[in-house]
Design a protein around this nucleic acid. Structure first.
Lengths: 203, 203
DNA sequence: CGATTTTTTGAATCATATCAACGTACGTGG
DNA sequence: CCACGTACGTTGATATGATTCAAAAAATCG
């Protein structure tokens, strides 16, 4: 199970046997049941979580009392509240299993030590963060450049399998609108809104 | 001028004299006049830019033909299109000077070499990216948790000086609404919209 | 199976966009 | 250093995408 993490790391840098041993002693595999929490508001986030199997969501309760999903973590994604993890301030987020999942947890303290013992890992996490930042920018751009309906249709086109794994109200929350609205556009025919040669729908 | 970069790096890691020399030979100081471009769409982004003085914006033209500002870079911020920089794919963004500015440019090739020669720099950029990612998440959250008017009032409260440095239409674009709307809320008295004990307006 | 959770539907409402016109400021060349 | 043109800001009328509320219908789970 930790091997899925090792495999992932090896896509970015190359670890020798000693490095792999260090990673293995630093990481802890845990199993979480659907709806179980890895983090809740007012707690300090103490670990970075690698999803080796299943699906995790990160969300907060907005001022109207609604859940707002900020990100999903699926296979081979890291998920954590970097702000709380780094500063030690209490988090405002929930991190919760959407499905029964297998998680590799790297505790902050252990992670810091690992980065000293295996400096290559600095590069790995730099690259991971660069990817995460890029994805976040792209997501943000979609939010501002598309109508809610377009964003929904694009998401379904990009991740048809994923859409079926989660309840609709979570998809609505992730995409930034109400479940009622999602239900309405699903009912409508594919009213191909503004369609101008939709090239480049990358991941 | 490059010293401002060295100073910044030293806030995160400690460089010895040899390291500093490497950074200095890798970096190139450039001066850009207001409205000058560091990047335009269809070009490949080849450098990471550190703003040592002035103000830079990163934006794209959306499908309605409007400029949408994704981020501002001010003193001590790195600004680049990480996606294009990393993948070598053409960018869709503009990077442009909002004021006459002083920039430290790190070319991708030189940067990669520097990271090999001075591995500590991996850590520096990991930390920078972590901060950038955190900021991006926070900004995204504000977009979804606040009305346009609230977001404007909070921004003015947080960065009163900066608001005066840029034209209103840029602020509107950054905050995600039209210049007309900004003009309207500026005219209004401080109609303290939904105000429910607004604690925690952190940076 | 009954109980909860999730999805659907319709009507009324609201925040913000759009369009269009006018006012103001500002920097650039004569 | 003034005048003119362009860039920027304001205002009002109208349009619209999405929300809210409420309630019923459907699906899922122990």
């Amino acid at each position: 199970m930790i091997d899925s993490l090792i495999a992932h790391i090896n896509k970015f840098i190359s670890l020798d046997e000693a490095d792999i041993a260090e990673v293995k002693t630093s990481a802890k595999a845990i199993v979480v049941k659907k709806k179980e929490f890895l983090l809740q508001p007012d707690e300090i986030c103490r670990s970075n979580y690698f999803v080796s199997k299943g699906c995790i969501r990160l969300y907060f309760i907005n001022r109207s009392g609604q859940e707002q999903i900020t990100m999903f973590g699926i296979e081979n994604w890291w998920i954590t509240d970097y702000d709380s993890l780094e500063t030690g301030k209490p988090s405002q987020y929930y991190i919760q299993a959407v499905e029964d999942s297998e998680i590799i947890s790297l505790h902050k303290k252990t992670l810091d030590e690992l980065l000293v013992k295996v400096p290559k890992m600095e590069r790995y996490f730099r690259l991971i963060l660069q990817k995460a930042y890029t994805a976040s920018m792209r997501r943000f751009q979609y939010f501002r450049d598309q109508s809610d309906e377009e964003r929904y249709r694009q998401f379904v086109a990009l991740f048809p399998g994923f859409v079926q794994r989660i309840p609709q109200y979570m998809l609505a929350s992730y995409l930034g609108f109400t479940p009622q609205f999602l239900s309405k556009i699903r009912g409508k025919p594919e009213s191909r809104t503004r369609n101008q040669d939709n090239t480049d729908v990358n991941s």
